[in-house]
Simulated assay, not measured.
Amino acid sequence: MGLLNWHSGEHFDHRGACPCTLCGKSTPLRSHTGEAVHKVCAEAWNEQHPGADRFCSDRTPKRQNEGDHA
Rank of each mutant, 00 (worst) to 15 (best):
His38Leu: 10
Gly67Ser: 04
His69Pro: 00
Pro28Met: 09
Ser26Tyr: 07
Ala42Trp: 10
Ala17Trp: 05
Gln64Arg: 14
Glu10Gly: 15
Phe12Met: 02
Asn65Arg: 14
Pro50Lys: 00
Trp6Phe: 06
Phe55Glu: 04
Met1Asn: 11
Gly2Ala: 11
Cys23Thr: 03
Pro19Tyr: 13
Ser57Asn: 09
Ala36Met: 00
Asp53Asn: 14
Ala36Ser: 15
Lys25Asn: 07
His14Asp: 11
His49Ala: 02
Ala44Leu: 12
Cys18Ala: 12
Ala44Val: 13
Cys20Tyr: 14
Thr33Arg: 12
Leu29Asp: 04
Trp45Gln: 01
His11Pro: 13
Lys39Gly: 00
Gly24Lys: 07
Gly2Asn: 14
Glu43Tyr: 06
His38Ala: 11
His49Ile: 02
Lys62Asn: 01
Asp13Cys: 01
Ala36Lys: 09
Trp45Phe: 11
Gly51Thr: 11
Asp13Asn: 15
His7Phe: 12
Asn65Glu: 08
Phe12Gly: 06
Ala42Asn: 05
His49Asn: 15
Lys62Ile: 06
Glu66Tyr: 13
Leu3Lys: 15
His32Trp: 13
Leu3Arg: 15
Asn46Gly: 02
Lys39Tyr: 04
Gly34Arg: 07
Pro28Asp: 11
Glu10His: 14
Ser31Ile: 02
Ala42Val: 05
His49Tyr: 01
Gly67Lys: 05
Thr33Ala: 11
His69Asn: 08
Gly9Glu: 08
Thr33Val: 03
Lys25Ile: 01
Gly34Leu: 03
His11Lys: 10
Ser31Gln: 05
Ser57Ile: 01
Leu29Asn: 04
Asn46Asp: 08
Gly34Glu: 04
Gly2Thr: 12
Met1His: 12
